[in-house]
Amino acid sequence: MSVVDEFDPHALAEQDFLDEVHSFQFWFDSVEGYLSDRPYGRLETTVDEPIDDARRERLITTLCNYSVGETAALEGAAGLVQLAPDRNSKIFMATQVADEARHLEVFLHRLRELGVADPEAEIERRAQPALVDFKGALLDLVAEGDWQAAVFAQNVVLETMEYTVFRLHAANADPVTRDVLAGVISDERRHAGFGENDLGRSLAADPSGRARLREIRTGLDAMVVGVFEAALADIGAPAGERSQLAHEYLDTIERLGLT
């Protein structure tokens, strides 16, 4: 006699799977699992370790630029709620808005813990111009009402790079920053996955969109690849690990047929 689990994700019909993973309930029950015992993303039992001045400076610059990226995604996702073509996507994008707001908050909080009295001014001072340009380009796509291009910019280009950089950073970070990044990484998995799958489905239905997205990609890559490569150098990621950034990003691009 065969025994089938009452809850087996692989037994779901595709639409039931999509309804489940895009739902607010799924998001709520997921984040409860890894955030409920972490005020500002940090386990209360984690002890901060002394950081020398040079490392602290590099970390502040990195967190300032992460904050620029998270602000871009927060504003972008908020605008995309209105553009989303169906209700599941609207609900998912609303959960992403909450995630991005939390990411920004925990990075600002960490900056204050590191002694930055005025994080807003520090971000302004240390933001990489290319990343600020990327934010402008993303918000322009949102303002134009271009769901497909904006999801590509935000959930594929930005989120895929952030997902890789945050993971590499977490592996090399001080204990508190590692805690903070761990929760963010778990969120980014959803965001990057949503982008790839949403675009993948739309491009499978209408492959003509690929040429346009390839063109958009060329402009966006120039703005962000250098910034995230610099971030990896700043956090001291070994050279061998840094190549993972391009490798994982290009894997995504290839799966979408955008090479």
């Binding site: 692989h10 999509l18 895009h22 998995r189 990057a192 996955g193 799958n197």
Partner: peptide, 28 residues
């Protein structure tokens, strides 16, 4: 999962052609 690098598990051995879902990144 090639998208998010999580290990996907099933209650029985997997075989070529099986369809599985990665819930953490919403991939089929």
């Amino acid at each position: 999962c090639p998208v998010c690098k999580v290990v996907i598990r099933a209650t029985r051995e997997l075989r070529p052609g099986d369809k599985v879902y990665c819930m953490p990144c919403m991939s089929r």
